[in-house]
């Protein structure tokens, strides 16, 4: 609907990236998607540091999709830093992980995650999830203005 929307996906796994990309292709929306490899890159992206210095190419994401198990800085830490930062905390963070552990679910919600989704086993489900999610966050929900 709105060209300004974009999604930041943090996942270190190439296969998962490939699956998510493919699934997103099947989604009706053609929202731009950026992939990063780990938590450090998520924060660099948000702060427009390093390789993400170009503010126009790497504008603030409308939604962040975060994997929990990543190298360098994992999803839990990254989530915590995002939600503790007044500049980023209004951005919805959706956890998409293989972990079903109760501790992870509890921890993420207590850090302020906006949704917790367990990676499905089938591609069909993944497509459904991503299409529902993008529809919900980008079309139904009114997001906080993220410019600045």
């Amino acid at each position: 609907m709105n060209k300004r929307y974009n999604i930041l996906i943090a996942d270190d796994d190439d296969d998962d990236k490939f699956l998510v990309k493919s699934a997103l292709e099947d989604c009706t929306s053609n929202t731009p998607v950026h992939f990063v490899e780990n938590g450090v890159e998520v924060l660099e992206y948000l702060k427009n540091e390093g390789q993400f210095a170009d503010k126009y190419a790497f504008s603030k994401p409308s939604v962040i999709i975060l994997d929990l198990n990543m190298p360098k800085k994992d999803g839990r830490e990254t989530l915590k830093e995002i939600k503790e930062n007044p500049l980023f905390k209004k951005i919805p963070v959706i956890i998409l992980t293989t972990s079903k552990a109760e501790e992870d679910v509890n921890l993420c919600y207590s850090y302020g995650a906006n949704a917790y989704i367990v990676k499905p086993n089938s591609f069909t489900e993944l497509t459904e999830i991503l299409s529902t999610m993008t529809n919900f966050w980008l079309n139904i929900v009114t997001l906080a203005p993220t410019i600045g």
Partner: peptide, 16 residues
């Protein structure tokens, strides 16, 4: 679980 989940997902993707 990890590789298996992917096998199933790719399989599913192939089927779809």
């Amino acid at each position: 679980q990890e590789p298996l989940r992917k096998i199933r997902a790719f399989c599913d993707k192939l089927q779809v």
